[in-house]
Design a protein around this nucleic acid. Structure first.
Lengths: 338, 338
DNA sequence: TGGGTTTGATAAACCGGTATAGCTCCTGCA
DNA sequence: TGCAGGAGCTATACCGGTTTATCAAACCCA
């Protein structure tokens, strides 16, 4: 018999459907002997609850969603998402909750997806990434009353639950390290100012500059692409007083920047130190290998899943969990200035 | 009112549940006027069918699954999966079918997931990647009677549906191009021989060698990691008669190989030509940029989704769809031998 | 004008679970 | 001896859709 139902088991065990349900869910109402017998039969018939049937009764589908609004082109190279996903799933698998993943082009579509998911009861909650300044998704999700956790941006008061790392401290640790090496001309090739974390990083650099005696500490924004990373590097290195160190907001941009430096005959780390704000295999494949800020992205995802499950269990809770601080992994691309 | 049900609409429209269902699904049984009225009310209340309720009646959940069995570490850098995923979703979104994604460590777990999905009715079908020689997943899926489509390995007789590209022709085009440049010593740094496509590529090189007058054309297998790619390159370049060209089975290994060549003072493309069997932003970030075989991975995924939907609609069909041939994108890493 | 068919609608069953009210014994205690 | 109370189980309603059987009214044609 294909796909046995709870009724089949009931017949086989000579009891009622209700008794089977009690037995399988470990709740009182059946004797130990009967429970034993039912469990054995269920095992034999390799029965599993029909997810839709269960979802219909209880109002929970044991599934959470995650939408990534980025063009696919920039997505693949970022190991960030793969690790994050693995972490999220590791956090969910404990409760055998499944994950719906969707890659879309823009935030408008992303919001559309949330509306659909919510009205179709397809997910119990969602995980948000790439939080922007004045993010429209927040209000939307609150209106939908869909449990959610934000990754990487600390929610303000009355906001959604979040899992975040201290971007400010991380950026400071980089700049302080470079300053300690003797650098005074440090440039920052940032991502898009639409993202909250970009803004925080830029602010961290600006705030630290006077204290560390930096002569100049410009933050130049980009769209996170290798092309803009390269172009910005080219501009920086063409200046009369070029920086002796550049901090990149992503590993891909750092690699692109390294390429430009080599192409312009600027030796790394001799004439220029390079740091990537994000680590991956990419940085290690380079010659010289890049000094980079390593975050435990897997753990990040795992905790996001954990927090989301808590929020789903009790939607009134607002959890803001701070994860382990990222650490600077020093490799071959940084040295004291010439 | 939050989340209206079909009964709410029925009351509001002054008709029965059944009539509403007929109207919303465009089937006969209601007059045009009533249908119009019901549709308008449903629209106003922004009603959407409860996916679980629908899944319970009909036996289809409008959701397909995809399991990737690879350690997360090697996953992120491969833009392959991101593009594939985007393509799959583009193919599914037309029918607004959702995708369940799972990243697991090994094939045993992957099979376990299929069993669970099948018995819980969580997906209507699955998409398989990384087909191995004598793949155990095939028999399992047939036993479960779960519709499936295999990406990248042509199924034999009585096998699952598939979407595939001609690895053999692709490899031949690379080797022929190198031979035409004058290379006679071509090495092949392959992936793991467990994968069917690796075997096909190795065989293509071996078959072509005599015809093209290659002196030596070894295929060395690896685990697809940058580490083994680098180690194998080091071994090849340390030989007395070193190859003048190396073909890598992935872009990551090619990049690692380029690093080794530079480290050993072997100039690329002067002393050594490098070709990557797979293209991505990685190959373009390098200096020199790598000549690579570009596949339309997005389209690959889109077609896989399309075929899967056909197989779900009619499980008796066995579709083997061949996709567009990959093309060789020549960049700076290939030149005639010194 | 009467009988058969079509149209437009309804009530109720069903999908596979969970939750609850209720029933039947059995036990313990006054 | 009688009754309260609990253990163990059954019957049934319910979740929100789809589908089928049924039915009344309108329509058609001889």
């Amino acid at each position: 018999m294909a796909r046995p139902t709870i009724a089949d088991i009931a017949i086989r065990a000579g009891v009622s459907k209700g008794a089977v349900s009690f037995a399988l869910n470990g709740r009182p109402g059946v004797s130990d002997a009967t429970r034993e017998r039912i469990l054995k039969i269920a095992e034999q018939m390799s029965w599993r609850p029909h997810s839709a049937a269960r979802a219909l009764g209880a109002s929970r589908v044991d599934s959470v969603g995650m939408v990534i609004a980025r063009p696919a082109r920039t997505l693949g190279v970022e190991p960030f998402f793969a690790h994050l996903l693995s972490g999220v799933q590791s956090g969910l698998s404990a409760e055998s909750i499944s994950l719906q993943l969707l890659i879309v082009e823009d935030t408008a579509t992303e919001i559309e997806v949330y509306r659909r998911w919510s009205s179709e009861h397809r997910v119990d909650g969602v995980i948000l990434v790439d939080l922007t300044v004045k993010d429209p998704r927040i209000d939307e999700l609150k209106a939908l009353e869909l449990p959610a956790v934000v990754i990487g941006g600390r929610g303000g008061k009355g906001a959604l639950a979040s899992v975040w790392a201290d971007d400010r401290d991380a950026m400071l640790s980089i700049v302080e390290y470079l300053a300690a090496l003797g650098h005074r001309r440090i440039a920052h090739v940032a991502g898009t100012p639409l993202f909250q974390h970009t803004v925080r990083r830029i602010k961290a650099v600006r705030d630290a500059a006077p204290r560390l005696g930096l002569v100049d500490a410009p933050s130049l924004t980009t769209d996170f692409s290798d092309a803009e990373g390269a172009a910005t590097t080219r501009k920086l290195l063409s200046q009369a007083s070029r920086p002796t160190a550049i901090v990149y907001d992503s590993d891909v941009m750092a690699v692109a920047g390294l390429g430009v430096a080599m192409e312009m005959g600027v030796s790394v780390p001799g004439d220029l130190s390079i740091v990537a704000f994000d680590d991956s295999i990419l940085t290690q494949l380079m010659h010289p290998a890049l000094t980079a800020l390593s975050r435990d992205t897997f753990e990040f995802g795992r905790q996001a899943a954990e927090v989301l499950l808590e929020v789903i269990a009790d939607p009134t809770r607002i959890i803001n969990r701070r994860t382990a601080d990222p650490v600077l992994t020093v490799r071959e691309s940084t040295a004291p200035p010439a």
